[in-house]
């Protein structure tokens, strides 16, 4: 470069095209960093204010006692964590949440798979069944709660009316601890089924038919085909759906709020509902922040697991 600059203009003209190219190579991406500012800026700003900052703030608050405006007053270190993890009421919530999450996930997965598998067979009216099965995807949480509140209502609900007709004991679904949990699980599973069905159905459709032909040539019955061919082939999707369902279940709030409000006797007082109560009803923001951190750690663990599994997933295309 120096050499070229010091030469006079006459000599510059004689430089061969190749050396000119060497002297200043054109870089298509040179201005990308300015563009990046414009393309990424808005998203990063929003994420910074509403995700990164609150994350740090929640973590920070979890080590403090707070006043009723949510401002930190006394630094207490791990005290909030310790008191939560030794509180029988919080541990009961944790236990209830785990029971709820695993019951919901298992049932959603099992029924979703059953729906998808039976709807995949070409029978008359299968288009009708497919539409019905995906139907609950269009139902929002409040509507689902209203539908099921009516089903579970002890005086006018269908379930207890049926019980009366069949001379079975009438169950107070939403006011007896064990039954309340059952009712909430059933409602959640019902609400989840549409989405789960659609994903499983699409995955089953995308399995190349030759896998089944190969199995048929070897004489595998339909049932064995399902266990030997279908299940292993779609296992990545099963993992994917199970993690999504798990995470969503951990975050359940609306259905709980509408159907049981955490009751009876805190039997359905799941983690998120508890955060809401402690923070916004009791004004105990420090403790609620600690609960938030614990919830975030649990969910982060499962999300991380999901990424690990997605990375390893097999492809059959």
């Amino acid at each position: 470069m120096e050499q070229i600059k010091s030469n006079n203009s006459n000599k510059l003209k004689q430089i061969s095209p190749a050396s000119k190219f060497l002297a200043k190579s054109y870089d298509v991406n040179a201005r990308d960093k300015y563009y990046a500012l414009w393309f990424l800026g808005p998203s990063l700003l929003v994420l910074a204010i509403f995700v990164f900052y609150p994350m740090l703030k929640t973590l920070y608050l979890s080590f403090f006692l707070t006043n009723n405006l949510g401002q930190p007053t006394v630094f207490v270190g791990w005290q909030n964590y310790l008191s939560l993890l030794t509180s029988s009421s919080y541990l009961a919530s944790l236990q209830a949440t785990l029971i709820y999450v695993f019951a919901v996930s298992l049932l959603t997965l099992g029924l979703g798979l059953l729906l998808a598998q039976t709807a995949s067979f070409q029978v008359k009216g299968s288009a009708f069944f497919r539409t019905v099965f995906s139907g609950t995807m269009g139902v929002s949480v409040s509507v689902a709660a209203i539908f099921w509140l009516f089903m579970f209502n002890p005086s006018v609900g269908l379930l207890d009316q049926l019980a009366t007709i069949l001379h079975l004991p009438v169950i107070n679904w939403l006011t007896q601890p064990g039954w309340a949990m059952t009712a909430v699980v059933i409602s959640t599973v019902w609400m989840n089924l549409g989405f789960t069905f659609l994903i499983f159905f699409g995955t089953l459709q995308s399995v190349p038919i030759t896998f089944y032909e190969a199995a048929q040539i070897e004489g595998l019955s339909k049932t064995r085909q399902f266990f030997k061919v279908t299940l292993p082939l779609i296992s990545p999707t099963i993992f994917f759906v199970s993690i999504i369902t798990l995470i969503e279940a951990f975050k359940s709030f609306g259905l709980i709020d509408l159907m049981t409000a955490g009751g009876p006797n805190n039997a359905t007082n799941l983690l998120v509902y508890r955060i809401y109560q402690d923070a916004f009803l009791s004004g105990n923001y420090g403790l609620a922040s600690t609960e938030s951190v614990i919830l975030a750690v649990i969910i982060a663990f499962f999300t991380f697991l999901q990424f690990k599994i997605l990375e390893k997933r097999v492809t059959y295309k």
């Binding site: 994420l47 995700v51 994350m55 998120v272 923070a279 916004f280 938030s292 951190v293 969910i299």
Partner: peptide, 17 residues
């Protein structure tokens, strides 16, 4: 990584914001 963080766990500071 932010996908790992549930919005539900961040409502307290967000409400203040």
């Amino acid at each position: 990584a932010t996908m790992m963080l549930p919005f539900e766990a961040e409502v307290i500071p967000n409400f203040a914001t």
